[in-house]
Write a protein that binds this DNA or RNA. Structure first.
Lengths: 333, 333
DNA sequence: CTGAAAGCGCTAACAT
DNA sequence: ATGTTAGCGCTTTCAG
């Protein structure tokens, strides 16, 4: 690997001149510029970004912290963030917190030690207040944190639209089925939006919330969602008046729809609305509320770069969601 | 951000001592070690990894280049690679080539300029020969490249097992349905494995290969695979003797299975085997050949680190695949 | 228009 | 056991 010195020597100029040429700074005679460029080619010279960052105290690396990567929401987000970084001349240091608070903190320390220019964070901290006066530029995704800019989708509106879709399909007794999430997760807003909309229409809205522990089992032993399906089937048997279901995540909905015991049950006749807009919803013809995941990623990168550049940034950026109607609300209920 | 100097001054020692303590090098009195650690805490000191890398000419960052991130195979791979890096004290710089050769090259230059310790590469180059004597430690994933270590799954065996599964389900006239891939892609081996197994059993094996362009349309306008489904349905009508299908990728299989026009057709009665072992195959009860994606990622990281450390590394590491039987070959054909 | 030299934060001889 | 010092590859005054 050749260095700036090699180039300078070979071109018969000083390192300062080479540096100026790389950075388009100062006045350079056309002759030397040509010469230096030629030598750079010959030596296959690539400036050492580490040394540069050390000197300028400004790297072009952005850190992204996600709870996990192998989940459609996050892989789409990561994909979009990578693309946006690339377009803007940044690189992506990707970190997974494994949904563990301790590891999330560890990742932030690591990113700081690696002198990233800024951090994109999908936090799973119960108390994210600690980030309020963080040293590095920080942007939160899918989570509002006091004191730092956030990019979220409009969950309340999403919940409302989900209710509306069900109502339009003729439902009068909808069921809200989802994980019991803490209030600080944006997801809780879609529950509220749904409830609000139902209340607004004078409908009684039932709720069946499973715990995080139930979900863990689903992820592991019960990958096909048999346990959850049992829960739901039993509930539906006890409450036969229910005539439509809002399942608050597409992946969860997919597992339920595909579960063995659902095939013959009343479940398969009911209008269903999912949430997220994942690919699997398209496959299963599931009506869903689509989150603008890619746009969220891109927006977050833009905001972060603005912050890195010292420009003002809005504290909240809330992107619209969109109803995507498919067979699951059209099958003539 | 405090530096080593700040710590040294505050602790009343030299920077060398602080450095020694950080790196557990040389002999240090228990007293000063305590003192220095205390100061580090107080100052919230984190060593500047950039400066370290510059000095030692050895970073702890690994670059991963994938064609895209938002596809289950690669998001699982990326997830596993991140985890393996984390466990071994490395960080992950993630790059997407967008399946473009030019951008793949660009990414490699970028990684080199950023002085990564080594690179994990899922190459889409037609002629990957250029990598043979690459300057940086390189490990190829899911692709064999002359001169550099590779980690792949046993595609030939996978194809064979797929054929066997179909045969066990009673098929005598299997169809191979997949994308027409170039020979240098490992995928071509599973086609060969399938053909070999069929030939070995004295079966005549039909083939329907769609082009990359067909697939592009599937990715874009035809996200639900309607066009491909049409192709397949027509083919099946023309060849009514076909009694089982090997679809060479789970995602493709999923699109087909879920396509509207498949519902009533003969297709839904046929035994089907997919490939990859993606989550969607589980949902759809699709028999599939599961690739050990996470293990591939972890193995690749291990090999790369061995190479970084100057240890010998096998040129080929071929991991076993596994048949996962589900309803699609059990529905009593 | 170009060069010399200081220094970014750290490590690694070489001293003591 | 600890300190001094010379760089790693680059940018950036300051001179000329």
């Amino acid at each position: 690997m050749s260095t700036i010195k090699d180039v300078a020597r070979e071109a018969g100029v000083s390192v300062a001149t080479v540096s100026r040429i790389m950075n388009n700074r100062g006045a350079i005679s056309e002759k030397t510029r040509k010469k230096v460029h030629k030598v750079m080619k010959e030596l296959n010279y690539h400036p050492n970004e580490m040394a540069r960052a050390l000197q300028t105290k400004r790297s072009h690396i952005i850190g992204l912290v996600v709870p996990l990567i192998d989940y459609s929401f996050f892989s789409r987000l990561t994909d979009a963030v990578e693309e946006a970084c690339y377009d803007r001349g940044y690189k992506l240091l990707l970190c997974k917190s494994n949904r563990q608070q301790e590891r999330e903190l560890e990742m932030l320390d690591m990113l700081q030690a690696n002198k990233v220019a800024g951090i994109l964070l999908c936090s799973r901290m119960g108390d994210a207040g600690i980030y309020a006066d963080y040293e590095l530029p920080l942007v939160s995704i899918d989570r509002e944190i006091k004191g730092i800019p956030s990019v979220t989708a409009d969950n309340h509106s999403g919940g409302t639209q989900a209710a509306q879709a069900l109502i339009n399909a003729g439902c009068r007794h909808p069921l809200l089925f989802g994980i019991d999430v803490p209030d600080y997760m944006m997801m809780s807003l879609r529950y509220r939006g749904f409830r609000d909309a139902c209340a607004g229409e004078g409908l009684d809205c039932s709720e069946l919330l499973v715990t995080m522990d139930d979900m863990k089992e689903t992820d592991e032993a019960d990958a096909d969602g048999t346990l959850l399906a049992d829960k739901l089937v039993k509930y539906l048997q006890k409450h036969p008046h229910i005539d439509g279901i809002f399942i608050t995540g597409d992946m969860l909905a997919a597992k339920l729809i595909c579960a063995e015991q659902m095939a013959g049950s009343v479940f398969s006749e009911l209008p269903i609305v999912g949430y997220d807009g994942l690919e699997v919803a398209g496959l299963l013809k599931l009506t869903t509320i689509a989150q603008p995941i890619a746009a969220m990623g891109e927006c977050a990168v833009d905001l972060l770069i603005r912050k890195i550049d010292g420009k003002p940034v809005p504290e909240r950026s809330i992107l619209p969601v969109e109803l995507v109607e498919r067979n699951s609300t059209l099958k003539g209920c």
